[in-house]
Amino acid sequence: MNKPGKIIIELNNIYHRFPGSDWELNISEFTLSSRKVLGIIGPNGSGKSTLLRIAAGVLEPLRGAIRLENQELQNLDRLTIARHMGYLPQEVASLYDFTVEDVVRMGRYAHTKGFGSLDHSDLDAVRYSLEITEMDTLRKRPLSHLSGGERKRAFLASVLAQQPKILLLDEPTSALDIHYQVQFFRLLRILAKKGMGVAVVTHDINFASLFSDGLMFLVEGRCIATGPPKHVLTGETMHLVYGKDILMGQHPESDRPYILPRIFTEKKE
């Protein structure tokens, strides 16, 4: 987990405010390196998704610099960006009921020429993505016949078929049950081991703590702590952000911190 990676995407002095709102995002630095999993955590409205959308070039910030492999993101066309970076948004409301395979094949867009016809290497990538996400048995299912978690995995497969160097994932496990959540985060570790850089926005602090190399803790549009999980998830920070209703512990298999809810509001000595 500790091999040094190369910085692939770098954001500096990002400032954004949506028109008609006084909420602000202020991030002085955000970097994502190859071979690393970065967990972005924080309470609702802390700017996790907004930061990810800015990094993906989907949302243009009012101020700030975004560099993808030492090139200004705004100078790159979408095809070039897509060959380096995969982005999975939180919600996908498709107009038509595509099948899982359709969706995964569409992930090859940046590698194909001419109306999305796929050659052998494309089909290999599609097959690999379907297998690694355990979606190959559901490949013919239309999106409307999938559970929330299966949908998430279908779209993840689509992004993986893109074969990017970095992955930006917005709440990829929010609808998954625990088995697939574990599978999913293990998969992220495997991808990182193979050289990918992964940034994952999640509500699940425990999964982020157990499976990330680094964490970024956002509160109200600012980064209040960043670094290895045990430095970010201190009792002090957690109580500051989430109040006194949580207990801190340590995972039995590692030195990683985890959190539990308290049952009683007042602690009796």
Binding site: R53, A56, G57, V58, D77, R78, L79, I81, A82, R83, M85, G86, Y87, L88, P89, V92, A93, S94, L95, Y96, F98, V103, M106, G107, Y109, A110, F115, G116, F155, S158, V159, Q162
Partner: peptide, 22 residues
């Protein structure tokens, strides 16, 4: 733009991610 419209039908943000100049 027939193929690009497929991606846009799926989702504009996904289309951007796939590399479509939406």
């Amino acid at each position: 733009h027939a193929n690009d419209l497929n991606h846009i039908a799926l989702s504009e943000e996904i289309a951007l991610g796939h590399g479509v100049a939406v």
